[in-house]
Amino acid sequence: MMPPELHEFLTLDLMPLVAVTASAATLALLGSFLVLRRQAMLGDAMAHSVLPGLVAAFLVTGSRDAGPMFLGATAAAALSGLTIAAIIRHGRVERSAAIGLVYTTMFALGVLLLELNGGANVDLDVDCVLSGQLELMFWNAPTTWAEVLDASSFAGMPPQPLRLVGLLIASAAAVVLAWPLLRAVTFDAAFARSRGLLPAATSAGLMALTTLAIVLSFDAVGSILAIALLTCPPATARLLTDRMGPYVMLSVGLGGAAGLLGYGLATRGAPLLLGASVDASGAVAALSGLGLIVAAVGSRRGRSRPRAPRPGL
């Protein structure tokens, strides 16, 4: 027989823990490129703008299946991207102003859609969109060691954590495979273009992967977490190293650690300290932000760094 504590952990905690950690690590990995391109705002915008697409897909299909949700989110992301481009072009508005204008509107639209249909749908409400539904990911785990060896006991696993692990592996493989390309395109797009490297297509691919990560994370852990993890771990890692390889790996590590520790803190630490468990995705997001503050205060790089003089300034 398996100890009851272990069985309880497997049933209630393992799947959320895997989901939150894989999601955090993936978002931190992809976010590290956004931060390098100084496009963190764009990731933030994407995380917000996909909401009406998710809600619309849910209202049409009546389920939280990943396929339609992803289509809806992609449509919403594409619509936002085109609207932003159109506003910049015809409105002659500054880029960040156009992004801010569009994503807040899209997010508001999503919340409105949710509220209007809130009574009819217990499956999707504002709370779960903001902080996900980790608590719903339970696994009818085996009770004896013999069952652990039986493949059928894994069939009942919830799909979200597995999808997130798959996405983490796929993203990591893509980044490793295209590493020199990504580095050249991110550092100097004009040079990359002169070498025939297609910087626009590369960043579009990266953006598509980021949107997919946001959608899968959104569904699993909510939007606060997605936004926080796209930016905080990379920004923290950037304060700690000047090399790109260590920067990206550190970012992934910090994201994963925030996921593990945040979940542990929310479900185990908080009951001891506060007498009740707290929202896990909130704890993970708060922890990643705290890491950034600690790094900013503590790092020598943050305090004084030799900077190259810029001409004309």
Binding site: L36, R183, F187, S194, G196, T241, M244, Y247, A308, R310
Partner: peptide
Amino acid sequence: RSRVAYVPQRESVDWDFPVT
């Protein structure tokens, strides 16, 4: 293109980028 080398303006890239 393999016979042409292009050097963009220095200000066109982020020199804080983590490469050597």
